[in-house]
Computed example of a mutant assay.
Amino acid sequence: MILVTGATGTIGREVVREIPADLDLRIMARDPGRVTDVPPAAETVHGDFTDPASLADALRGVHTAFLVTNPGGNDDTCFLRAARAAGVRHVVKLSAAAVADHGAEDLITRWQRHNEDLLRTSGMEWTLLRPRSFMSNALSWARSIRSDDVVRALYGTSANACVDPRDVAAVAARALTEEGHAGTVHTLTGPQAITAAEQTAQLAELLGRPIRFEELPPDRARTALSARYPADIVDALLESAERQRKGSKAAVDDTVATVLGRPAGTFHGWASDHLGAFGGG
């Protein structure tokens, strides 16, 4: 039995789609009613990372688990204890590429490092997935593109080797279903680094209309982020953007191509498949 957590999120829902239909699959969610597009044979159960009893039920009979947790909540201790007690052999964890950046000391990165350490010392086999930023983060521009034909973002000329979430999910599914991934750290990037200004130009080309890039000063970026996130998360995101401005996120890794046997997806390809969100036909 494979357990997938985070199935209502960007990566988890794609992982569910990637698991072969002939394998036993259980999906854990705090609110199972929010889980959509569930394969017919899959089981959806309630589970709460702060509730050991619910975790014990969700993990019963599971041999491999995909673990997605979010900063700002509790660490992974409760889940990992329950997983080990249930006899789980292998945990594949979604982490972040910034963990390997010695200059990254923001809240989110420190939280990810801590949880990686918890998994490594859990007594179970582990695989760590460390993606760069998701290409799908561009969806945060969709409203302003639809209404004003403008993208507003920090540091428009700083490059990021962002990755297609579908590639992250495909690698996760391989790690969950194949031998040879235990004890491995997979750093996952796209095939090239790209700037927000370049992403804007590609969206304009695909949409067939001019899209203007407007660089936000840090104070306006803080105001915009503060409408969506707590102050400590806002600080972490702004520190992350500053590291990107200094070039820390531009390195390209070939792990996606190595694991999947095909090139990593491009931003142009991801955007082509999601034009509807930006007002395209």
Rank of each mutant, 00 (worst) to 15 (best):
E125M: 10
V16L: 09
G47F: 01
E215C: 04
H268R: 15
D219I: 03
L275G: 09
F66L: 08
G61H: 14
R89Q: 14
I2C: 01
R243D: 12
A271V: 09
I11E: 01
F267I: 07
A159H: 07
M28T: 08
L154F: 04
M1A: 13
G103F: 07
A98N: 12
E105S: 08
T127E: 03
L188S: 02
P217F: 02
V68D: 06
T187H: 11
L94E: 02
A201G: 10
R245H: 12
P191D: 04
N70E: 05
T10D: 08
A169Y: 01
A97F: 14
T5H: 11
D22S: 11
A41D: 09
S147T: 11
V88T: 13
L107T: 11
A241T: 07
N115V: 15
L238G: 07
V259P: 03
F49S: 04
V15N: 06
A193R: 14
A169R: 06
A224W: 15
E215F: 01
R13W: 03
D273C: 11
T127D: 05
L67G: 10
A257T: 08
A56G: 09
A182P: 02
A56Y: 02
M124G: 09
S248D: 15
L176K: 02
L238E: 04
L3I: 14
D164K: 04
V62K: 10
I233M: 14
G265W: 06
G261S: 06
G6V: 03
L25E: 07
T195I: 08
T127H: 08
R212N: 01
E242I: 10
R222Q: 06
T77V: 12
V256S: 05
E105A: 11
T64A: 11
I27E: 01
R120D: 01
E18Y: 00
T127W: 00
E43V: 10
V171C: 12
H274Q: 12
C162Q: 14
D106L: 05
R81V: 08
L176R: 05
P217S: 06
D149A: 02
D253S: 11
D235C: 05
Y229S: 10
G280S: 15
L188Y: 00
G103L: 15
G261W: 09
A142C: 08
A257L: 05
A142D: 02
R143V: 01
V151E: 00
A142Y: 03
T44I: 10
R84K: 15
A227T: 08
C162N: 01
R34V: 03
L55V: 12
A251I: 01
R212L: 07
A86L: 12
G208S: 09
T157L: 10
I211R: 05
R81E: 15
W126K: 02
P191M: 02
A197G: 09
G61M: 05
G280Q: 13
G180C: 07
V99C: 06
T189G: 11
H90M: 13
H274P: 12
D273M: 08
S147V: 00
R222K: 11
A197W: 00
G61C: 04
A138S: 13
V252N: 10
N137H: 12
L238F: 05
I11M: 04
E242Q: 14
T5A: 11
R212G: 04
G12D: 12
R89S: 11
E105H: 14
